[in-house]
């Protein structure tokens, strides 16, 4: 699948942003005054920048408001609702922390739950697609949620918890690669089964349907850069989990800041791979994957 930069930026930044909002909402951090304003602002900023970036890959972004209409069937529509619900439901707690209004924590808990639901809906957009076997597995939402919780914990200054989550994320990422690599084979689709011609004999591509590129080849049969996949996996694992866990041992805000930057770069690499390594079954018709 084509790794669109806007979608990679969106899902990584808003994922970390919603993770941070969840920690702030649940009351893991007790901040007051302008410090609360800054931290809530960071959560809101990351979430909103991400949502804004996601409209860049649309063919007709000015019609994006229509995406709220199909919540009964579409995970993309549910994501739109969940993200707006999160931004609204977090507002009372954010104002309360900033202006010391002393609202009960249940307001924040509601916002935090909405934030995590939003991350889940984002993951389900990919998980639901049977035509991309690598994504069509319960490990996909688990990975998105673990990334959001880890990034959120680092940004929220929950060093001990963040180090634990880095360990968990390492395990989840390794499981994602392990499971993902076998998913296409488990689908048991080949050129022979996809065309139904396999019953006659061995099927190979004799001539491509078109000599030039098209939308399908660009969007669904993206193979550029896969040869560096193993190296990138290593970089993603180290930067998203190992390095931040060590940097969090450093005292003061610099360690946490560097850990957050490292983790986000690692998460971007991992998300790029999430798309670039995903193979769509339509590639079978082209004899490519």
């Amino acid at each position: 699948m084509h790794p669109a930069p806007s979608v990679i930026l969106f899902s990584v930044l808003s994922g970390a942003g919603f993770g941070l909002l969840a920690y702030l909402g649940f009351g893991f951090v007790h901040l007051y005054g302008w410090l609360a304003f800054l931290w809530w602002g960071l959560g809101y900023g990351l979430a909103i920048i991400g949502l804004f970036a996601s409209t860049f890959h649309l063919g007709n972004p000015w019609r994006a408001w229509r995406a709220f209409s199909q919540w009964r069937s579409s995970w993309l529509s549910r994501e739109a609702w969940a993200s707006v619900a999160t931004l609204l439901s977090c507002a009372p707690m954010a104002l309360s922390d900033w202006l010391s209004l002393d609202l009960p924590r249940s307001f924040g808990v509601l916002g935090g739950v909405c934030a995590l639901i939003t991350v889940f809906t984002t993951a389900m957009i990919y998980t639901q697609i049977k035509a991309v076997p690598r994504w069509h597995h319960w490990i996909t939402p688990l990975m998105f949620l673990t990334f959001a919780l880890t990034g959120g914990a680092i940004l929220a200054g929950q060093n001990g918890l963040a180090q634990l989550l880095c360990g968990l994320l390492l395990g989840v990422m390794l499981a994602v690669y392990r499971i993902g690599d076998g998913q296409f084979a488990r689908r048991a689709q080949t050129l022979g089964s996809a065309t139904g011609l396999g019953v006659i004999g061995e099927v190979t591509v004799f001539e491509q349907a078109h000599t030039a590129g098209n939308y399908l080849l660009r969007e669904m049969i993206y193979v550029v850069g896969r040869r560096h996949a193993v190296k990138l996996r290593g970089i993603a694992l180290v930067l998203a989990t190992g390095v931040p866990a060590v940097l969090l041992l450093l005292p003061g805000i610099w360690g946490a800041g560097l850990a957050a930057v490292c983790h986000l770069i690692g998460a971007l690499a991992a998300r790029w791979l999430f798309f670039a390594e995903a193979e769509h079954v339509v590639g079978l018709y082209y004899g490519k994957r």
Binding site: H57, N60, R63, S74, I129, A131, V132
Partner: peptide, 20 residues
């Protein structure tokens, strides 16, 4: 009403949809 998000083309296993 189409916003051109491309999700339907991803969901189709047969490559029947192409974004203009």
């Amino acid at each position: 009403a189409c916003i051109g998000c491309g999700l339907c083309a991803w969901a189709c296993p047969y490559g029947a949809r192409e974004m203009d």
